[in-house]
Design a protein around this nucleic acid. Sequence first.
DNA 1: GACCAGGTCCTTG
DNA 2: CAAGGACATGGT
Length: 210
Amino acid sequence: MSGSSSVKARKIVAILSGLFGEIPWWLGNADEVMIGAILTQQTRWENVEQALLRLKNDNLATMTAIHAADPVKMEESVRCTGFYHIKTQRLKSLAAHVMDTYGAVERMVSVPTAKLRAGLLSVHGIGEETADSILCYGFSRTSFVVDAYTERIVRCAGIPGKKSGLKEMFEAVLPDDPFAYRQTHAHIVEYAKRFCAKKRCDECQIAILN
DNA sequence: GACCAGGTCCTTG
DNA sequence: CAAGGACATGGT
């Protein structure tokens, strides 16, 4: 962890915090966050909200319900998020893991973060971003979420040769506070979505760090 | 019509 | 390990 990278990471956090202040982001109970985390894979959030509404209408917005649900029925609600077949499978797998391992979502709140994370990662279709999103926003854990936007903003900031280790880099810089973790990831997404083009970095103030 | 979206897994070189 | 393709609908 070179000092230079940490300094820039700190600056990113501070700049974005000043830019956005407190913003509401990804609110919802643990069940909804888990469902949303899978549905939002490679998909716009607005579409996920639609699917979530449909699932709620059918009383399918809980792990318990999904565990017992007809997959074909679920696909109707989830279709608008794309990859609907595979996502239905992933929701089923997650529900099975939760119910078989813990018996209920509420039981998960007393499980240590590392153990919770390992369990989530063992589910087929749940990778690091999805697992950390669930931990951070669903269970209020200090597990930093790294996504495509995080990689973009880091590139804009000129942090050298960082393809991996971003999670650790930000965690080393953030206070031990779940709220800070939630806000910082939210800030990064909102900023990068607007200013960090996929390939270039035009009009991006983060580039000032260079 | 082309391109992209708050990923993950599998297959190749 | 890095890179490329599959998974799929909906918006710009």
